[in-house]
Nucleic acid binder design. Structure first.
Lengths: 184, 184, 184, 184
DNA sequence: TATGAATGAGGTTTCATTCAT
DNA sequence: GATGAATGAAACCTCATTCAT
């Protein structure tokens, strides 16, 4: 791993562990086994690290989606079926909350997060359209929106209660999403 | 307004504006037009201010619920119908995100938020039970859970996109909730 | 007790309990059951309270000495024999240390403490002279000096070890002083 | 001098000059000609600085003792004979008083001072034993105790009177100690 | 390129002192 | 006289950032 990615990885680890505001540059440097000064050779400042982290998460999600096999409409949907995708999401729960929170105040983050979401949505809609050319695009968008809403809800709940997604929760969410999809 | 509430109000304003971590005691004092020292006459420390803020939000929600007229089962539900309730929620969105985020790292906050949620849930279940004595309690709990999930999702979305709840969003959420309720 | 003495008494209690620097005006006021503002009606500032306290201690010692029965030269001396005097001294140990310590830096305290010591010494020498008119004054002064030295040592030791003067310590000190006195 | 020792030296100077409670981190930093932040690179907190200072004093005393030539029993003892030892002690007088005073209220300091005293005592007893193998250990301990008592007394007196040890005081103390030692 | 010592602004909190009531 | 709310300077400590080596 090159220095840039090494630092980014360390930043991710620290922020997951300590939270956005408690992950100091020193922590990150120690975690990456480099000097504090070196951080500033690869990133302009702390904000830029967050920026890169968000970009990373988005790219990760996109690549997860790329791998995703086409869903069989007749089978019940399991939005957690790609276990590695959701494992990742769980890992990121705390960081995502922090970043979302930070984004409410920081224009740069906010723009970034919004762009990321739009990119993701476009990506999802595009591939759904390929599968179901006859369907109305607005339905895709709604689906995506609801799913996002629920996932965000789950994230917050997890953060709040401090537990990971267990089977009960997983089934409940799936039931809701399935009902929504088939009700259309 | 007495000094205690004045400071609390200022704290709320600052946190909404600048975020949890950037609302310094000095900021709050300046916003309340008092000296920094005075803050500590009314609150033990910064944590206590947050504590009071969360308690305030919870009590507010409870009193909103108390005012809520019995819902006519045959009419579609509008969870935003109490516009002042949601206006309040929107005001609190940023702060709630920050606090939820901070709660993932701070034991005291986490306990506080958990307590608040339990208190709210108990309150809701109790009043639903009064209205529908024959219904199974677990259904109430599920309903509450889903609603919470969605509301949390909405909060995050709002924070993320930086806009308030518009009509489109409102109708979409309502549609989902209504479908869920009648599917049961 | 008048307000002035009430406050002084409270100050003494607080300083014994919490130490010189940790006894705040608020503490003292609370202990005296008066408002903080009132303190400043009776004392110019915190320094003046110390000043008054030191004066008090000196006067107390003088009055203890006044009560002291003439010592029988043929009996071994017990410098702790006036148990109430030493009880008082023990009570004051911590405060005396603090004040002595503060006096090293504060001209006003230093002058005060020096004056107090001289006053006490003169008082002691005067009464010893009355008892033993033939003896050389320098002997009295030496005796007084040594006794003071030892008492101060005892005070520091007590402060250091955190215990009060026990029988063993008492006998040891007495043995030393007796030897000194009779060696002359 | 390395930064660590530079800061420690500055701390010592400040404490001697201003006293324990008035030697602020900022003062110390200014005195050492470094930034306040740097202090915390070398010491965990203010307490640690004191800790290091006390340790320094103890080590200094021990090394002074190591250099001390064996005393000729037939010659009168001069406990100030190692003039550099006592010069050092005088330098430390103010600080020692403050620390002793602070130790009465602070568990950590108290433990520190107690340990230091025990270490010194053990050191002294050990070397006396080497010189006089036949003598009872309790005699050494008593001697040490009395000497300590007197030294503490001298320290307090010096602090109180604000002067350094002059010849008169020196001779008086020596006379006392000699009498004590030979009376045994 | 890489280090980590150094900086200093800024955070929370305490407390002697003042002053309107 | 008496109160206690209010002030604000100053304490300790943290951390993003810079820079000599």
């Amino acid at each position: 791993m090159n220095r840039h990615d090494l630092i980014l990885h360390a930043a991710r680890t620290c922020m997951i562990e300590k939270g956005f505001h408690n992950a100091s540059i020193k922590n990150i440097a120690a975690c990456a086994n480099v000097s504090t000064g070196l951080i500033y050779r690869y990133f302009e400042n702390k904000e830029s690290i967050i920026e890169a982290l968000v970009r990373d998460i988005v790219n990760n999600m996109k690549s997860h989606l790329d791998d995703k096999p086409a869903r069989d409409e007749n089978q019940p949907l399991d939005i957690f079926q790609r276990s590695d995708f959701f494992a990742d999401l769980q890992d990121n729960i705390f960081m995502l909350m922090d970043i979302a929170s930070a984004a409410t105040r920081n224009t740069r983050y906010k723009k970034l997060v919004a762009e990321a979401h739009n990119a993701l949505q476009d990506d999802i809609v595009r591939r759904e359209k390929q599968q179901h050319p006859a369907m109305n695009e607005s339905i895709f968008r709604t689906r995506h929106y609801v799913t996002t809403l629920l996932l965000d809800g789950v994230i917050v709940q997890c953060g709040r209660k401090g537990y990971v997604v267990d089977d009960e929760l997983r089934q409940m969410i799936n039931a809701i999403v399935n009902k929504l999809l088939h009700a259309k």
